[in-house]
């Protein structure tokens, strides 16, 4: 075996230094991965959406139970809108510039007078009124929002549902170019939701075109969305393009995704537990302590009769 000349032996300080470099590099990589969750550092610059809340108005300061309105910033920057992102804090940014005009809603199916409505016409024909509703997400958080909209019943009466119509099926826009989240194939796009006809005709059921005194911001479902305050938030389908009266119970996107977790009715019900989130308590955005969740989200007096004789533990 050849002798190794002493000049070829790496001096100890270099060789130790190299080890240190390797660990340093490894640690640095790990820390970058580690800090990946801290996106907010890059988001300190003010965004144009601040203007939305800057000029937000509302006729009321609380709901009928005396709960104060949620901060506009919370309601417009914590959004479940998977068409844009799985991250609630990212939706507002990603939905900026979403094209909402011109926009039409095609209403058809089992009706005598199918019709395609322009959203601007809807706003003219059915003047928006302010409704302050609690919205309780299935993820155990809630907000109190001053919506602007009109009862869905007004629109349905105009198209005259036939006697065969039992359910209303809603469909969101499908446009993966504008809605990057729709490239995620784990969900069956477009978003579908449904109501029983009597639920849809209930006076509380709203088609909302605005909030906080202003036209609906993209991240909250512009230009037109559903608001059914006694049901979990996912029933409130956003950016609606199609409404059909149908005979069979529609299958919603979430029910198709996980039928044991998300039922058709999805009435707010502290007695039906969910495998992931508390349904007996919730956190109102902006509050520290949890609140008890109320059956039908506090609207039992007005809607419980719709479900007389039904077992809401099995029809969840």
């Amino acid at each position: 075996m050849d002798k190794i000349r002493s000049s070829e032996i790496t001096p100890e300080h270099i060789y130790l230094g190299r080890r240190q470099f390797l660990v340093g590099a490894g640690a640095l990589t790990a820390s970058l991965v580690f800090l990946g969750g801290c996106r907010r550092l890059s988001e300190l610059a003010p965004t144009p959406e601040a203007d939305f809340c800057g000029s937000a108005t509302a006729g009321a300061t609380s709901d009928e139970l005396g709960d104060p309105l949620s901060a506009c910033d919370a309601a417009t920057h914590y959004n479940n809108f998977y068409e844009f992102s799985l991250e609630k804090d990212d939706v507002a940014e990603l939905a900026r510039g979403f094209k909402t005009s011109p926009w039409t809603v095609q209403v058809g199916g089992l009706v005598n007078k199918p019709k395609t409505f322009d959203v601007d016409d809807l706003r003219r024909n059915f003047p928006p009124e302010e409704r302050v509703y609690r919205m309780r997400c299935v993820e155990a958080w809630s907000v109190v929002v001053p919506w602007l909209g009109f009862p869905l019943a007004k629109l349905l009466k105009e198209v005259e549902p036939t006697s065969k119509a039992k359910y209303v099926r809603f469909e969101s826009l499908h446009d993966p170019k504008q809605m990057p989240g729709q490239k995620d194939r784990s969900f069956q796009w477009p978003y579908i939701e449904g109501l029983r006809l009597d639920e849809a005709m209930h006076d509380l059921t709203l088609l909302a075109t605005g909030m906080y005194g202003k036209p609906m911001p993209p991240q909250n479902g512009a230009p037109i969305r559903l608001v059914v305050p006694w049901k979990y938030g996912f029933k409130n389908i956003k950016s609606i393009v199609k409404i059909d009266l149908v005979e069979e119970m529609p299958t919603s996107l979430w029910t198709a995704f996980a039928p044991q977790e998300y039922g058709f009715y999805a009435n707010v019900n502290p007695d039906v537990s969910h495998p992931r989130w508390s349904q007996s308590s919730e956190r109102r955005l902006g509050e520290r302590a949890r609140r008890e969740t109320i059956p039908f989200n506090g609207y039992a007096e007005k809607v419980a009769r719709l479900y007389e004789g039904m077992d809401l533990r099995t029809s969840y």
Partner: peptide, 22 residues
């Protein structure tokens, strides 16, 4: 330093109210 830095960032964001609506 690396193991504690995420905690420092978390505390900083918490103090500044930069942890979002929830």
């Amino acid at each position: 330093v690396l193991a504690l830095s995420p905690l420092a960032v978390l505390a900083w964001d918490f103090a500044r109210g930069d942890l979002g609506a929830n």
